[in-house]
């Protein structure tokens, strides 16, 4: 069974919600990425999203762009990220999801990329620039060992039903009109939007983009099965120069709100 399903089922059995956290692989370094993922998982991250840095991250705000650039400047490669995943897998069974732009996969070769994901132990892919209309590029190569995570936006409206019909793992609901890092506040019809997504699928739904503070957590939890924190985590890692202890403290402080 895919680790994402296992995790959500276990949480649901206890009536709990998932904390999903993002970080950019290779920022500050791939060695530290291994330690940071393990630290996160021990501090209570239920799913870890790992960004493979790309030169032109269209869906990301300034914080993640800068982190990706730092990582690329250090020479991070796709093979290097796979190597880090293998090291993580030797230490932790936390579900791992890649956030990867489609050109990275094309350059690697989609079939080889997916085989590497399977072998290394990656459970899902979020490809922000591969919408429903283009997903055939890769979906025909995938089985349930690696899920293609479905993204749904406030502007998806009449598309929602079609988008989530075959959703697996979790549905990534975008909270804002905008890119990662937010700062503009949530979409005003958020509650109705999430209710609509929920009504169309049995797959767990998670909300991301613009979640930066622990005070935001409690009011959102009843509407979702999980919350995704990205830019804020990237920022904590950057500010602490990749200190696993500081990350541990921060993730625990967020996780407390889930109890």
């Amino acid at each position: 069974m895919n680790r994402i399903d296992k995790t959500f089922q276990a949480l649901q059995a206890e009536g709990k919600k998932a904390l999903i956290t993002y970080m950019v692989a290779g920022d500050p370094s791939l060695e530290e990425t291994v330690d940071l993922v393990v630290a996160k998982a021990e501090a209570g991250a239920d799913v870890v999203e790992l960004g493979i840095p790309f030169s032109d991250p269209l869906a990301d705000g300034a914080v993640i762009q800068a982190a990706a650039q730092r990582s690329l400047d250090r020479g991070t490669t796709t093979d290097g990220v796979f190597k880090a995943v293998r090291k993580i897998r030797a230490l932790s069974q936390v579900p791992l999801v890649f956030l990867v732009y489609f050109n990275t996969i094309l350059a690697y070769g989609p079939e080889v990329f997916l085989n590497q994901c399977k072998e290394a132990g990656v459970d899902g892919l979020i490809i922000p620039d591969l919408p429903f209309e283009e997903k055939e590029e890769i979906s025909h190569l995938m089985d349930d060992s690696v899920y293609l995570i479905t993204l749904v936006a406030p502007t998806s409206e009449q598309r929602i039903q079609e988008l989530v019909r075959e959703a697996k793992g979790f549905v990534y609901c975008i909270s804002t009109l905008g890119i990662t890092g937010g700062g503009t506040g949530f979409f005003s019809g958020l509650e109705e939007f999430l209710a609509r997504v929920k009504s169309e699928t049995y797959t767990p739904i998670a909300l991301g983009f613009g979640i930066t503070k622990r005070e935001q957590v409690k009011p959102l939890l009843p509407m979702v099965d999980g919350l995704i924190m990205g830019s804020k985590i990237v920022d904590v890692i950057h500010q602490s120069q990749g200190d696993p202890v500081e990350l541990d403290v921060f993730v625990r402080s967020i996780k407390m709100e889930f109890e």
């Binding site: 269209l58 869906a59 489609f102 922000p128 620039d129 591969l130 919408p131 429903f132 209309e133 283009e134 993204l151 749904v152 936006a153 406030p154 502007t155 998806s156 409206e157 598309r159 988008l163 975008i174 009109l177 905008g178």
Partner: peptide
Amino acid sequence: GGQYVPETIMNA
């Protein structure tokens, strides 16, 4: 060609 863009702008 195609439409390789984030879901948020697909409707647009």
